[in-house]
Design a binder for these strands. Structure first.
Lengths: 169, 169
DNA sequence: CTCAGTGAGTTGGTTTATCAAACCAACTGC
DNA sequence: GCAGTTGGTTTGATAAACCAACTCACTGAG
């Protein structure tokens, strides 16, 4: 069950690592509920729509990966409540980015849930470069082989047309 | 198959909408490959590790949702190549945010794939507020009921402890 | 021309996961 | 002391994932 991914030549990639943990149908919805400060099993089950047995499995998996904690608040009918860890809270940018994409490209109508930023306006997520602070634009990135080992993007081919990077224009 | 989600009282949410499209084990990896300008079935299968039949299914599903296009480049052995649409390209921020999380909270070692930004530094994704341009901090958000309809976060309880929002400190 | 090889899937059969509904065990209110 | 709630686990049925083998057309070597 430990999901031994890289068998032969799959791309070695931290996106795949992340998806190993939260890349199923329910996990990110569970994290969303914990963001809304829901802590109880039944509430999470209702709000996500996840079947109860699967939810139990996912909660244990997420706890195992350090995304949430299972704190026992009752002995001997062993009962737990769930909270985000630091790692779980760090998923906020992922959820907010996904929320924006879902709003703009899946649902076309009004977004039923909105957040207000401390600046007073509605919060809409935008990805910036940590180094220079600029917003990410189309073709602003060029992949680096990075290690010299395999796993990177082959520099000869690939990347350059409508991919992430746009070398010249 | 059309996944009639909201049966009773699940939270109405564009995150769930997004996950309906890309919330399975392989779809985001497929999109990642298309970002790397891979267009061929066999390459995508190899680099993601997805079984070929499932990959065929996913490619059709993603095309159906307008995330990718299937362009026929050969008649009569009908063969297609795949490209991202505008909506698919808009997933770049999601992938980059997920990549950062995977790097920082799942894998602890060096990231095998890196991107350089036009500013000259390695690109690390950071989520900002579109309105004011500031980077998102802990407790910067407060949920709004937004419609007046159901689906929002109940304002009385929830949200306020270690959730997204932090009303006071 | 034949024949091995490749690319892009499809098909068949098996394992695994998902799901809904029922069940359970302890507590809670009355 | 009994109906109701909470937080699950168990039970089968159904659907999906998975793997291996196969097809179909083409490509290049000999």
């Amino acid at each position: 069950m430990t999901a031994a991914r890289a068998e032969k030549t799959t791309r070695d990639c931290t996106i795949a690592d992340a998806l190993e943990v939260v890349g199923d149908r329910w996990s990110l919805l569970v994290v969303r509920e914990l963001f809304y400060a829901e802590r109880r099993f039944t509430e999470i089950a209702r709000n996500t729509g996840a079947p109860r047995d699967i939810l139990a499995t996912r909660l244990r998996k997420l706890a195992g990966h350090g995304v949430i904690t299972r704190e026992r608040y009752s002995e001997r009918p062993p009962r737990y409540e769930y909270r985000l860890t630091e790692a779980g809270r760090a998923l906020a940018p992922v959820l907010l980015t996904l929320k924006r994409w879902g709003h703009e490209h899946v649902r076309k109508g009004a977004d039923p849930v909105r957040f207000d930023h401390t600046c007073g306006h509605e919060f809409v997520a935008e990805v910036h470069c940590t180094a220079c602070g600029d917003a990410l634009g189309v073709g602003d990135l060029t992949p680096q082989p990075a290690g010299g080992e395999r796993g990177g993007v082959s520099p000869a081919r690939g990347v350059g047309h409508e991919a992430v990077a746009r070398p010249a224009r």
